[in-house]
Simulated scan of single mutants.
Amino acid sequence: MQELDHTNGNYIENKTAKIYFEETGNPQNTPLLLTHGAFGNLEDFNLIVSKLIKDFRVIAIDSRGHGKSTLGDKELSYELLQSDVEAVLNHLQLAEIDMIGISDGGIIGYRLACYSNIKINKLITISSRWDYGNVLATKELLKNEDADYRRKNNPEPYHQYQKLNPEPNFDLLTEQLHKMWFKKESYPAGDVKNIKSETLIIKGDKDKVIQRSFVFDVAEFIPNSNLMVVPFAKHLVYKEEPEILMKAINEFLA
């Protein structure tokens, strides 16, 4: 099995940043794009990628400013992250994919399904917002989680970032992410009703960042959607319950 390990990837340049990506799996099979969440990197998918590489051509991207991807000099937005993903897929000459996005990566998935020329046949979002009201509802949870808080309370992602990133600036990355989360225009909001992809929406029942109403509402908006709430799991449901997730993911992608 070829895990995602930051040793066998490539870079493309897009809008002042170098975006790092890796491929694994069977290059003859359906392309499956993986996009991680804030403060993570493509290795976050290793708990589930071993169950995917037999049946898919897996493409995993380090989001701008994360992992081995540089931040560039443009202010972060979900539009910009969408552009980075499109640049990688265009480089690979892929116009049609399946996709799994975690948290911020899921928001990119919603945006691609709404606005991109790249066709997403099957979209899975895990622990993801979709509307500006979602982030306002959890503002109190997010406002005090600055760079110092994250260094102290989430040291493993911080140290991995410091190790991997070619131009580390954790304070700036944290500042940029917080600004991005509160950009109203970045969220697809009601446009999700135009998503034609078959969609699987997943959340952990105990996730305080993604409230139940967020996923219930978006599941009602998206015409061809499925909803999965994982009992007792929190925001990192993909780490807490990988076996439960993979059962649903494999059935959905089959």
Rank of each mutant, 00 (worst) to 15 (best):
73 D>I: 15
46 N>H: 05
53 I>C: 07
93 Q>G: 09
91 H>G: 09
47 L>I: 14
85 V>W: 04
53 I>W: 11
100 I>A: 09
77 S>K: 03
64 R>I: 03
87 A>Q: 06
103 S>D: 14
90 N>F: 14
55 D>V: 00
18 K>D: 10
57 R>C: 00
105 G>Y: 12
25 G>Q: 01
97 I>Q: 11
67 G>R: 11
49 V>W: 10
21 F>R: 06
32 L>F: 06
83 S>L: 13
99 M>H: 15
105 G>T: 04
33 L>A: 10
37 G>Q: 00
93 Q>V: 15
104 D>T: 13
94 L>S: 10
41 N>D: 12
82 Q>I: 07
88 V>P: 01
56 F>Q: 06
101 G>S: 05
107 I>A: 15
60 A>L: 04
21 F>T: 04
35 T>C: 13
87 A>M: 07
101 G>R: 08
26 N>V: 01
76 L>D: 04
104 D>K: 14
104 D>V: 08
50 S>W: 13
42 L>S: 09
43 E>C: 09
20 Y>D: 04
35 T>N: 13
52 L>I: 01
36 H>Q: 08
87 A>C: 07
82 Q>A: 14
83 S>K: 14
40 G>K: 04
33 L>E: 10
61 I>W: 11
72 G>E: 02
73 D>Q: 15
61 I>G: 02
92 L>P: 00
71 L>K: 05
102 I>N: 12
100 I>C: 09
86 E>T: 00
52 L>P: 06
89 L>C: 07
22 E>M: 08
65 G>R: 09
82 Q>W: 04
40 G>Q: 14
27 P>E: 12
54 K>W: 11
95 A>Q: 14
75 E>S: 07
21 F>G: 01
109 G>R: 06
23 E>M: 09
21 F>L: 06
100 I>W: 12
89 L>Q: 03
105 G>N: 08
17 A>H: 09
42 L>R: 09
23 E>L: 05
98 D>I: 02
80 L>T: 02
67 G>F: 10
35 T>G: 08
70 T>K: 01
38 A>K: 15
45 F>S: 03
54 K>E: 14
49 V>R: 10
